[in-house]
Design a protein around this nucleic acid. Structure first.
Lengths: 110, 110
DNA sequence: TTTATTTATCGTTTTTTTACGATTAATCTA
DNA sequence: TAGATTAATCGTAAAAAAACGATAAATAAA
């Protein structure tokens, strides 16, 4: 029970799911949105904007970074983050390659 | 602690996150992929293809349905499912409206 | 050099997710 | 009508996620 079976799916399925998981929380969407608007941002600015504790924001940033959606480098005592647009392009491509083509071919349900 | 704060984010952030959450598991990506290829499908066919128990697949189907990504109707003792493409279009639109425009405006990080 | 600022990490708690077997409900078929 | 099929639901257990405060580490400023 509760043994995770994610490994038993295809690489593409896993990587799409991993990207989706990274953006599956409104706080992380909000972080990405701020980064998109400002190009780059230090952690403190993000903390100011979100209704979450600093440690929680740091945790979300870490997840986004681990998933490859953002890049970050330290700048003195601060950390500067920005979006990794390539990851987004890859997601778009993979996502569309799974679904987009098939849209028009399909009629309604059952 | 561990009080969820999702409600404190914008509607758009929440709805994007909810869609992403729905596709944040490889099993659910796999289900959608099968549905996209076959247009429609009964539950049993999906169970056959996935490395998961019937009850688990049913649970994933329920999540996809609750999130509005698929439609399903019962057909005798079977259940027939198909993709709700409108939900996908909405996601694409919202997703792009948050990020797409900003891509070219942005240079590299920090 | 001491103090302040900034952010990551640690430890913890609560909630949610994932997964399964067993059971139930509904509908076919013999 | 009795038995078989199909799928949803229930109960449960283990794992992961979300959130926070406290602390540590690194750098800047006084």
């Amino acid at each position: 029970m509760a043994v995770h079976k994610k490994e038993e799916f295809s690489t593409k399925e896993q990587s799409l799911a991993a990207f989706a998981k990274a953006i599956s929380h409104p706080a992380r969407i909000a972080i990405l949105s701020v980064l998109a608007k400002r190009n780059q941002c230090i952690c403190g600015e993000i903390v100011e904007v979100l209704p979450l504790a600093q440690s929680t924001v740091s945790q979300h940033l870490k997840e986004l970074k681990n998933a490859g959606l953002i890049d970050g480098e330290t700048d003195g005592p601060r950390s500067c983050y920005c979006i990794n647009w390539k990851a987004f392009e890859k997601f778009n491509t993979d996502f569309n390659s799974l679904f987009e083509k098939l849209k028009e071919a399909n009629a309604k349900c059952c």
